[in-house]
Amino acid sequence: MASGAEEVSAFNIHPMDQFVVKPLFGAGHTDINDVMKDLAWYTPTNVTLWLGIAVACIALLFVMGTRGRAVVPSRTQSVAEMIYTFVRNMIVDITGEEGLKFFPYIMTLFMFILFANVLGLLPYSFTVTSHIAVTGVLAIAVFLSVTILGFVRNGGKFLKIFWITEAPLALRPILAIIEIISYFVRPVSHSIRLGGNMMAGHAVVKVFAGFAGALGVGAVAPIVAIMAVYGLEMLVVVIQAYVFTILTCVYLNDALHPGH
């Protein structure tokens, strides 16, 4: 990438800096490009910090918030109950009552993504879910567990999801190829949808912030634009958490009922 004085002086925009993983303690490197090079797997980084904050928020909401076990709930408790019923209804609607066995896992997934996304919108925060490493592991975990579950529960019948009996016989092999490709693309699209959305939204906010910094008094326009994009991002982070979860439910439904 180009380096030089002009690039720095024109617009001081570094939309990718916010995604850099840094160690929390001991800033050993002066060059930001070297920071990520020699991270040990156990080093506490800003990933650790923001994951910890997310876990703390979830604990606050679900452990402290529901401590009263009140029949007439407090505000926090009713939020927790709303999330509970929301996820539960989503599972029941898509996979039926059978899917409720996986309720804790899907709830974990939903809460993790929701809180990581929303906390990432705080200024100076770090968005864990904007990293392909994180979303990729989530998506591959979903993909592998759903595939294994499908074969364990249905055996060879699970392959019927590739062989569409409603289609004419001549078309079925072609459709089977398409289905197999789309099946294996699932983890890719599943992870990149979430990671890409998070990365794109935050980068856009950062780009507009760079405009605001360069324009001086004229910065009103980019600031209004940031507000608009920020509002959109609030919507997007929640919808992406919802979409990731609902697609997990759809894949789970394929594993539970392969014959559609």
Partner: peptide
């Protein structure tokens, strides 16, 4: 940062572990 931090594979084990 030059390039995408998302593609810095040396940071993957750290992120995956903490996740």
């Amino acid at each position: 940062y030059e390039g995408m931090p998302q593609l810095e594979f040396s940071a993957f084990p750290n992120q995956i572990f903490w996740m």
